[in-house]
Design a protein around this nucleic acid. Structure first.
Length: 328
DNA sequence: GGTAGACCTGGACGC
DNA sequence: GCGTCCAGGTCTACC
């Protein structure tokens, strides 16, 4: 009999809103089911892989209101109910809870989110503030590498293939496993292209301890030291470094790419060369200070939702695969 | 310090 | 069905 366990969340936490807040929720091994509003993923735990369904039952037991895209749709503050597909040892429940807490940003308490809404009240009514990420820094970095120099549907395929070909039981591959993979396998079977050697090199650096996640996650590590360290990693340039910084909860940099330029031109009415527009976007969001990325991102996210409907209705195989800059 | 071209894949397009 | 072109961020060589 599988062991169900619960995870307490901040009083304003909504699984539906806060999980569907960044594109990685659509990437394998994550699976969001819009019908049940549950997140399922395989976690590679001490005793082996376990598929866990994460739900946030409404406290009143009633189904969510049919009207969507309104703050009233969200369940808030109820404990997360986690159902694994096998019995977990106590230590594994602790391990899984930690990984899920990182992924869902449960460390962003209500006070942190209120502080953000003071700076940018536009997202207060809906309560947006948390950004979905991966259970580990390693997965966040590899996912970022798979999102560079490629359109979104290819990123979806690369992550699907990495989990299916290298990951154990459908989990995201561990650094040790990926470090042992052959470049030719990653290229031919996971479709990662020229990123093959860079992914292996990054995995080796994690496996050997050359990249220390604790140092990267430590608030005492300065922003500048962290950015310098990240940008020196193989396959990581200015865009990827800024994106990894936000995944680490440091929101003062913007990962500027062609999508930013599109937003600058189409929505903010900016004109000029791509480089000039990137500078303008950076200046435009500067007033949000340490929350810069959140404001930039939720503005983009709102635009996607206007085009494709609320993010919690998106699915990887349909809406999730159609996201390319050229379609907006 | 700035810039051009290569890297690889998948989709769009023309024949 | 095939060939060509293009988009995407990083890296290297070169000025």
């Amino acid at each position: 009999m599988p062991t169900q366990f619960t995870i307490p969340v901040p009083p304003d936490y909504s699984l539906t809103r806060d999980a569907c807040s960044y594109g990685y929720f659509l990437l394998s091994p994550n699976h969001w089911d819009p019908r049940t509003e549950t997140l399922t993923r395989v976690l590679d735990l001490e005793g082996g892989p376990a598929r866990i369904v994460i739900a946030q039952p409404r406290q009143d037991g009633k189904p969510a209101p049919a009207r969507i895209s309104k703050a009233s749709h969200f369940t808030r503050g109820a404990d997360l109910a986690c159902t694994p597909d096998r019995r977990l040892a106590k230590r594994e429940i602790t391990e899984a809870s930690g990984l899920i807490a990182r992924m869902l940003r449960l460390d962003d308490d209500a006070t942190t989110i209120r502080a953000y809404h003071k700076v940018d009240p536009r997202f207060k009514a809906l309560g947006r503030g948390r950004l979905f990420r991966s259970p580990t820094l390693f997965e966040d970095i590899i996912k970022t590498v798979t999102s560079c120099n490629v359109q979104w549907p290819s990123t979806v395929v690369m992550n699907e293939r990495l989990c299916a070909v290298v990951g154990e039981g459908g989990a995201f591959p561990s650094a040790r496993k990926l470090a042992r993979a052959r470049a030719s396998t990653l290229r031919a079977r996971c479709r990662v292209g020229y990123r093959d050697k860079r992914i292996i090199e990054l995995s080796e650096m994690f496996a050997s301890g050359e990249i220390d996640p604790h140092w990267c996650e430590d608030p005492a590590t300065s922003d500048e030291d962290l950015r310098k360290f990240l940008i020196d990693l193989p396959g990581i340039g200015p865009y990827a470094a800024a994106n990894i910084m936000q995944l680490l909860g440091r929101y003062h940099l913007l990962p500027l790419d062609t999508e930013s330029v599109r937003h600058g031109k189409a929505i903010l009415g900016m004109e000029g060369s791509d480089k000039a527009i990137m500078k303008m976007i950076d200046a435009h969001f500067a007033p949000f200070g340490p929350h810069k990325f959140r404001s930039y991102w939720f503005e983009l996210w709102e635009f996607y939702e206007q085009k494709r409907g609320p993010s919690w209705t998106w699915e990887r195989e349909t809406t999730g695969k159609t996201f390319t800059a050229s379609q907006f």
